[in-house]
Design a protein around this nucleic acid. Sequence first.
DNA 1: AAGAGACCCTGGATGC
DNA 2: TGCATCCAGGGTCTCT
Length: 270
Amino acid sequence: MPELPEVEVIAQGLDVSLRDHIIQSVELLWPRAVAIPEPAAFVERAIGRRFTQVWRRGKYLVFNLDDGQYLLAHLRMTGSFCFLPREEPLDPYVRAIFQLDGAYDLRFADIRKFGQLYLVDRLEDVLGGLGPEPLDAHFSSEQFAAMLRRRHARIKPLLLDQTFLAGMGNIYTDEALFQAGIHPLRCSDSLSEAESRRLHAAIQAVLRDAIARRGTTLDTYRDAEGKQGNNQYYLNVYGRKDAPCPRCGRPIQRIVIGQRGTYFCAHCQV
DNA sequence: AAGAGACCCTGGATGC
DNA sequence: TGCATCCAGGGTCTCT
């Protein structure tokens, strides 16, 4: 499931391969993948446009177009993009095809059909509610501590709240809380200064390491070239119920918090 | 403001 | 083997 690091890796790949390609036609095999605007308007407004840059905000992919519009995509759990020659056989889960000049396709595939595409003039229409970027140079430990103090919520669901902080998903939240030694049920305003600092550092380290390893492939995640990531070999707690904690050797626990499976070490995380 | 539950969707796992 | 049921998960919405 693509979280911030996976979306970053995809954006970096697409930025290189898509740059200056022109959308000649769009085929929507699953029109409901388009959230904004109506599918017919989406197709009409996309045709003829040239990609100028691909980047990321939170878990959203942002494609800048030459006329000032923005194509955005949220991959949810199983969405993926692939840039490849048009003659390549079509994957059965392809939901939208952007046919480009030079006989290339940009294909959006999504097994579970939760992913969404947007075409807007103003980024705020889609990204307006997002919290700060955890890897932004301006996102300081002091700011994070103040954000935590202002809220009275369990730390794990709070980190997953995209309006609080943009880009954290289930995997990296569990990993960051483990690395910081903080129990996922702790209340945000109960963290000490030292704990807030540790969590801030852990979030950034976990995300940076995952990007360097090209993301975590547990199930369907692939980058824009179809390659798997490597970070799954470095997970300390996520998906490791009953396995020994890498720090103390006691078994990793799995509980449900806010309808999300949560992995942690009851001895190391207090 | 916080938190629970429903909903969207499908493949894979589990149960009988 | 074959069928039915359950589950995961991100985000959005409603309700308490």
